[in-house]
């Protein structure tokens, strides 16, 4: 795990709202594909600085839920509330609402989705210039700081294809952070990586969590869910079947479905 800074800055790098007021609320999210119900009345509330892991079997709607949060794939009904911003999933949002929403919420994908025709530095700088209106110089300065934070400033001039999967994912994290989001969504960020490369991404996520970032993480990494996240939510068949303090949920699930899932994960 080269390049990961081992001194962890514990000072809060991210804006913190009122401590007990939720920063993100998902209310009664429902989504149907035709007759098939993918999300069935999902409610989640995140406090500022909270890290919540969503686990559960494939097809349980975890990723679909995440895509509802930033309207990449709007739900059939329900609401997303971030501070003053209230998005009704059933109604197409205004361009201004959508921009506000997506500037508040950063997203990291399973398949990284770096722009292959741009250098690493350009990947991180371009959105800052186009979305925040930063000058090229200011954007590059910020990009290099963030690349240093994920341990990759020496890759700035490379193209993404020259970087390992783990490095690409860390660059994608830097790119999302560059827009100064209040909340970060992670959609199975390590599922496309071999175990060692996954570890370096998890280290960056852990550092991010400690720095006070609010994070909603869809993952199959049970150790991360148990030790880094504050809470764990288990989903199955489009519903939340269990949620609570991470260790409690993972060690002592109550429902049969959750027990079955966790047994399958642990016995592997």
């Amino acid at each position: 795990m080269n390049h990961i800074p081992d001194t962890v800055n514990l000072s809060r790098m991210h804006p913190v709202g009122e401590p007990d007021k939720p920063i993100l609320r998902l209310e009664a999210i429902r989504k149907k594909f035709g007759e098939h119900v993918v999300l069935d009345d999902v409610n989640i509330s995140l406090k500022s600085g909270e890290v919540v892991a969503i686990i559960g079997p494939s097809g349980s709607g975890k990723s679909t839920l995440l895509r509802c949060v930033n309207m990449l794939g709007p739900a059939t009904s329900g609401r997303v509330v971030i501070g003053d911003l209230v998005i009704d999933e059933a109604v197409p949002p205004t361009a201004q609402q959508l921009t506000q929403l997506r500037r508040s919420v950063g997203m990291v994908f399973q398949s990284f989705n770096l722009f292959p025709h741009m250098s690493v530095l350009r990947n991180v700088s371009l959105p800052q210039e186009r979305v925040l209106g930063r000058s090229r110089k200011d954007a590059n300065k910020r990009s290099l700081e963030l690349l240093a934070r994920v341990g990759l400033e020496d890759k700035a001039d490379q193209y993404p294809a020259r970087c390992s999967g783990g490095q690409q994912q860390r660059i994608a994290i830097a790119r999302a952070l560059a827009l100064e989001p209040q909340i970060m969504l992670f959609d199975e960020p390590t599922s496309a990586l071999d175990p060692e490369l996954g570890l370096e991404v998890l280290a960056v996520m852990q550092e991010l969590a400690r720095s006070g970032m609010t994070m909603l993480v869809v993952t199959h990494e049970m150790n991360f869910a148990e030790t880094v996240s504050d809470r764990v939510i288990i989903m199955a068949d489009g519903k939340i079947i269990e949620e609570g303090a991470s260790r409690e949920v993972i060690r002592n699930p109550t429902s049969d479905r959750a027990k079955r899932f966790l047994k399958a994960v642990k016995d592997r």
Binding site: R102, F109, L126, R130, V131, A172, A176, L179
Partner: peptide, 19 residues
């Protein structure tokens, strides 16, 4: 994923097409 990333980063549509 290129469209996903552009959208999630709130890139304006002119930038998504041109950049």
């Amino acid at each position: 994923g290129q469209w996903d990333a552009s959208e999630a980063l709130a890139l304006p549509s002119y930038s998504t097409y041109i950049d």
